[in-house]
Structure formats: C-alpha cells, structure tokens
Design a protein around this nucleic acid. Sequence first.
DNA 1: GACGTTTTCGACCGTTAGGCGAAAACCTGG
DNA 2: CCAGGTTTTCGCCTAACGGTCGAAAACGTC
Lengths: 222, 222
Amino acid sequence: MLAAVLQVRAGSLQVMLWQRAREPHAHRWSLPGGGLGGHEDVEASIRRQLAEKVDVRQLSHVEQLAVFSNPTRVPGPRVVATAFLGLVPSHIDPVVPADTAWHPVDALPATAFDHEAICRRARHRLASKLSYTNLGFALAPPEFTISALRALYSAALGYQVSATNLQRVLSRRGLLEPTGGTVQPGPSGGRPAALFRFVSGEMRVTDPFAVLRPPSTRSLGS
Amino acid sequence: MLAAVLQVRAGSLQVMLWQRAREPHAHRWSLPGGGLGGHEDVEASIRRQLAEKVDVRQLSHVEQLAVFSNPTRVPGPRVVATAFLGLVPSHIDPVVPADTAWHPVDALPATAFDHEAICRRARHRLASKLSYTNLGFALAPPEFTISALRALYSAALGYQVSATNLQRVLSRRGLLEPTGGTVQPGPSGGRPAALFRFVSGEMRVTDPFAVLRPPSTRSLGS
DNA sequence: GACGTTTTCGACCGTTAGGCGAAAACCTGG
DNA sequence: CCAGGTTTTCGCCTAACGGTCGAAAACGTC
C-alpha cells in the first residue's frame, strides 16, 4: 500500500516523499503508505494512509498502479505492496508534516527500496493517460487559461506541447469548455486570456483508436 | 492471485473456469488461482498456479490486471486478490483437468464471488490493448492469414472489423510482416490467402497519441 | 499613436483510418 | 476450356485528425 502522489509545482512535476527516520534505509526518502486495515479495500486504505500526509479532499485522483512483489524488494520478510498513483491540482499547496517534502521527479534524492521504480511507473501512467483521457482535470485548477494548461501538460509530460494543438484536441474531444471569463494580462501587456474548465470531473477515456472502434461509435463532435 | 485466461475458441472469446466442488459457492464456476508462495513474486506465483490447469508454455501473455480487495468479495475473512490477464493463442487446445472448461465470455455460467467482474476487466483490458499495442500476437498462431486474424480480432472485440483496415493499420505500424507463404483455397475456391506473422513476440505499444507525443518521435514508417 | 507582448484563431498540409470497388487468383460446372 | 462463383488483395477516394505557421485580436507601455 504505497502511493506516488504527483503534482505540478513551480513548473515541474514533483512527488511527495517523506524521509525515513529509522532503519532500514534511514534518511532515505520514501513513498507514503501503510498496511491494509481489516474492513477497508485497498483504495480506502491508501486514502486513509495518505490522510496522515495531506488532506484527502485535496487528492483529485487516485488509481491503482500495480502490485510490486519482488521477494527482495525490502530487506527481511517479503512485503507485497499495491502501488497507487495520486494527483493533486496545481492550485493547491497542501500542508505536509515536517518529515515530508516535494521533490521534482527528474531529480529525486536517495530513495528507499524500490520506490524510484514505482515513481517511474507513476510518471509513465500519468503521461499515458494525459494523452488518451481527460486526466488533465486532476492536475489543473477548476478554471485555467490555455497557457496555464499548456504549462501543466509540458511539466507533466517532460516536453513542450503546443497551446494551439492542446486546445483544439481537448475541445474536439469534448473535454474542454470555455467559462466565458478572462484574466487580466500581466504588467508586460498582452491580450487577456480566456478561461476554460474541464467538462467532467470524472475520468473519461477518449478512444483515438481505429481498427478496434465499433463502426457505429464515431468520433464525438465538437 | 487469480487469472482470467482468455482464448479465441470456435469463433468466440472464451475464458477458462473450473467448477467448485465445495462450499462456499459449490458448483459455481471460478477463475483459477491460489495463494502466494514465500519466495516468488506475484507473476511467478500465478504462473505456478496456472500450471495446474494448463501447460504454462502455452500461455502467450500474462499481465497484471488489478487488485480486488472489497472486504465482502468472499464470505468469511477478507481475501485480497491480485487479478491477472492470461492469453492463449488460438491454434493451441490445452489439456485441462476434468473440473475445468472454457466458456464464452458473453454467456458465462453462474460464477463464484466477484469473478464475473474480473472477467469483464480482463475483456476490457484485452480489447483496449488490441487497439494500441501488438497484443494480437498473443491471440494468433505464428502464421496466419488476414481473414483468420480478422476473425480473431472480431471475436476478441465483439464486433466486426474490416480486413482491409486491419492489415493496413497493423502493417503501417510495423507490426505485421508477410512470410511469403500462402494457403490453398477451400473447396469453394477463392484466391489463395497470403500468410503473415507478427514482427515481434514481445508486447509493444504503438502510441497513436498526438498532443502528447514528443516533437522528435514521429510515426514509425512502414 | 507607435510599438512590443500575449493570446486567439484560421489556414494549410501530411498522415491516418474508413469505406468502396475493381482486380487477382482460385474453384466448380457445363 | 470457358463462364460464373468465391475469396483475397490492392488501389482509390474521402473524412478526420494532428502539426505547424502566421495573421489578427486585445492588451500594456513609451
């Protein structure tokens, strides 16, 4: 029961880690988690464990990643870990305990056990799902400009994306919706940016697949 | 530790189930599986469990599906199950124990516990991955005609796919390769069909994604 | 009012999938 | 051996989509 909680902070994708005080792997950084209780399923359990670190209401998305079960993944008796991906929207700055901090995923400190591999899996899952789902809603605030969204996607994916394409693709898939509002331009001027929101707060899959698409189910209009 | 082992048999997607002899859920049909041993990871464990039902060498693909952990999913003390998807190529007819049989996934008998939900997950995972990976190799024999492949995809997906498109898309993605051989037409005549094979026997992902594709990584040529 | 800045929008192009139909290559029956 | 039926294969056409560019819009400052 471990979670890689990701958030775009200061323009880069970061993961929440806590520093171990005791052996094994003292002083190394570790993903939050804990054991499974008696009357809860694994999703409820990881949310309960994460509640010790962040306000669970600030978690915009939680999903199973995979089971990590290599007998030697931790010293001593074998521990099977169900790993999760958690997401926090960028406009929130959760209060975290003293032993806990955010670290950019491409500059991790010394990590405990196999937690770096779990982080990699989480990054990969996030990047994939940003492409074929509306998972961006879990990274973004309720309202945002296209430039802000572009910055979020670029940080989460690790490379620049085009604002034009991002807006057109997400709109064409029916995921993005203008709120009608605008934001004032900065001190250097510029046209006021329009505000958008994601249509749905639940994860939706947009199948960009061809061979396997049922003939009736055509692409969703604008 | 449970596996939904799927195979296209007699033109329909079927799942391997065994009939429970004892309570709970006696006479209901159940997915094969068992407990995790001390010195193996979950992948090794499920392969060991499945070896009691089928020759493991006949399993062309095994992957994790998800953890099912609802406290009430089985009567009595809670059991956490890591579910797997297994695939068997269509040209193989495994010898199975007397209590075990194949059942079409869209006409399941009375199933035990939450195994029907696990089957649904397995079907969905297979259908999705057929679209954006080369997972078809795990359903097909080493060599096959396009019509045969079309039949496999249609059965696994649950709807008709076009042979023309199937060949072109898989070829364009660099997944399909002609062997040069042909098969003799049936008694009713017809042009001899060319034989093909999948280029790789390992799972490969073909990202048909746009917004999130790194600018350098262009589509793979023929 | 000119100029720089930022966002927005439309236009163009190459690629891909979906569909159709002709052509190819075989069979059987007369 | 030719006509007609069957099955596979291939090319063409079209629509949709993503990638890119550049112009236009809407603001600020000088």
